[in-house]
Write a protein that binds this DNA or RNA. Structure first.
Lengths: 225, 225
DNA sequence: ATTAAAATATGATAATTGTCATGATTTGTT
DNA sequence: AACAAATCATGACAATTATCATATTTTAAT
């Protein structure tokens, strides 16, 4: 099993603020897991016993709305930590995490994280910074949800996925989301999302190969109102 | 000027995690301010030089959307800290803060807060917990915005304001918001907010005295779909 | 007290989005 | 390869929400 001290991934998250000693100790008690596409990592309401460090793959964080629909609140990428919030507030998770890809993650027990938070102010401060960033992003999402049209939100989602996760050799978005996923990011009915995507296609903003999507006119998408 | 060591307000925020020494030092460099209703405490894009501890009054945190409308992202109450996020990320504020009441606040310089964050892990951890709570609330707001109707969101807003800020002797909500404010919380057009309030009135869920609102049927409001 | 400005209210209408029905296509399984 | 199940797609229509116009009421300033 890999050693945390030598793992490159930690450069992308708060674990980089840990000392070598602390990393060695974490390395000794962590477990590596492979998670298959579609598999649920943890459920809403579940008590988490630790945090996950995402070594590879992507997952979605969703919350079930009263109307029975899942809302995708955030996408978690290679390098991100998963579940810190629940550990810090000592509460059950308010979100469900589901793999969108095959994933490689390391599970670090709660006790280890909490003791490091107690002992290493640099680490705590780094987690704090991370959360401040998340919070700012949440503000943006709230404003977008409240003030922008479905058309605009979907255009921005496509751009976000393009910019954050990149494209395959054929130019299609490398993250394959279902139309339902798109709807659940944007906060609309699946049919509406499909309809808007069809419009985008007619307007030559995107093209599709099967269910894969290729952005044909990024600037055009940015101009969508 | 009051002394932080003796101030009751700090029980409601992370400052309670500071030691007596640290509080004495803060007390020495803090400044008290009175802010009039409607006054802007800080603007979007402004560089904050410290955090505010709200001793009395309420303010709204807004973000200007591209369509020129203000979205109210959060309400800040007596006991809350204001501006920690910008200080922690060392970024300009992403939100504007505007007093909804006459307010009493204490301004604590950035340097003091940052040094306490460096030195006192309990304090940092408490700020972290606070932010974790904010983040969870943001998730809820996102889901509500995405999945619920204007009618539902407005009903919930009325309940939230009722429960969080209480009522006057005559039963009207003690926080006086304009119809535009309500629209900017819910994320809808002012006319739509007004219209829904009128409906609620017709359905005897609320009554109005001038622009003041009184909840007549709390249970009914909770059932709104 | 008078008046102007701002906020609230309501109607008419258009635009957006949701819902239900139905078919086509894709995917996964045997 | 054949089939069932899931996903994608589109039409028709209903419901929700936005926009513009225009009163009415409230607030603030003189």
């Amino acid at each position: 099993m890999g050693k945390c001290e030598q793992c490159i991934i930690k450069q992308f998250n708060s674990l980089k603020a840990l000392t070598k000693d602390e990393l060695v100790r974490i390395s000794a008690c962590k477990t590596s897991k492979t998670i298959k596409k579609g598999q649920v990592i943890f459920e809403e309401g579940e008590m988490l016993n630790g945090v996950y460090c995402v070594k590879d793959g992507i997952c979605k964080l969703t919350k079930l709305s009263e109307n029975g629909k899942d809302q995708i609140v955030k996408m978690v990428v290679k390098g991100d930590l998963l579940g810190q919030r629940s550990i810090i507030s000592e509460e059950r998770s308010n979100l469900q995490a589901t793999a969108l890809n095959d994933m490689e993650v390391c599970f670090i027990p709660k006790s280890e994280i909490l003791s490091d938070l107690q002992k290493n102010p640099n680490f705590t401060f780094d987690v704090l910074k991370d959360m401040a960033k998340d919070l700012k992003e949440s503000d943006d999402v709230i404003v977008n949800m409240a003030q922008k049209s479905v058309r605009q939100r979907l255009a921005e989602t496509l751009i976000y996925i393009h910019d954050s996760f990149g494209v395959n050799p054929d130019g299609t978005l490398s993250v394959l989301l279902s139309r339902e996923d798109y709807a659940n990011i944007v906060g609309t009915a699946t049919e509406s999302a499909i309809r808007v995507l069809s419009q985008f296609k007619k307007e030559n903003l995107i093209s599709t190969i099967g269910k894969r999507i290729k952005i044909e006119d990024l600037e055009g998408l940015k101009r969508v109102e």
